[in-house]
């Protein structure tokens, strides 16, 4: 893992302004920022960068996570329009189906659940985004079938 983190850091010049870009790439690779990553990123970016600053960035942005996330990340929009269209029921349904609440990850590491605010597709409410795929107008009846495609062996589980 350490080697991989070094490789990611070395894609960018050793300058402070690339801190966020490196963190984003590490997040994309591992689905979270492992504790080992910060000292290695600091080492590459040079003396202008402090571990504290990287930690501040990693905790500030919602796109970065310090906790491991599942292979598939389910984001349910709880913005105003989705909320009116029953996103809370959708959240409860996912909780019942997978046994995890918002911010949590299933023990097998397959799924994690997150609540997000408006994603700008209000006409398609309620919206559920899994990885990069937008599932629109999700219904209680349709939900299990969508989740099944991401379970181990499912067609979207790649």
């Amino acid at each position: 893992m350490e080697e991989r983190i070094r490789e990611i850091a070395q894609r960018y010049p050793a300058e402070k302004r690339f801190s966020l870009a490196v963190l984003q790439d590490v997040q994309r690779e591992f689905n979270y920022i492992p504790p080992e990553a910060l000292p290695l990123i600091k080492e590459h970016l040079g003396p202008d960068v402090r571990e504290g600053q990287l930690y501040a960035l990693a905790t500030f942005y919602k796109a970065l996570s310090l906790k491991p996330k599942g292979k598939h990340i389910i984001k349910i929009c709880d913005g105003t329009a989705c909320h009116m269209q029953g996103s809370t029921r959708l959240i409860t349904a996912v909780q019942l189906a997978l046994g995890i609440g918002p911010g949590e990850c299933t023990p097998d590491g397959q799924f994690s659940l997150e609540l997000v605010n408006c994603v700008g597709s209000c006409a398609l409410a309620p919206i559920m985004i899994v990885d990069e795929t937008y599932h629109s107008k999700v219904t209680m009846e349709g939900l299990p079938a969508i989740l099944d495609t991401y379970r181990p062996g499912g067609e979207r589980d790649v």
Binding site: R50, E51, L54
Partner: peptide, 23 residues
């Protein structure tokens, strides 16, 4: 930071923001 150490930082944001060391 000005002294060249940088051991502490503003961590998290909103109501959970605090001054802390990494982790």
């Amino acid at each position: 930071e000005a002294l060249g150490s940088g051991a502490i930082a503003k961590v998290n944001r909103g109501v959970t923001k605090e001054i802390a060391t990494p982790y």
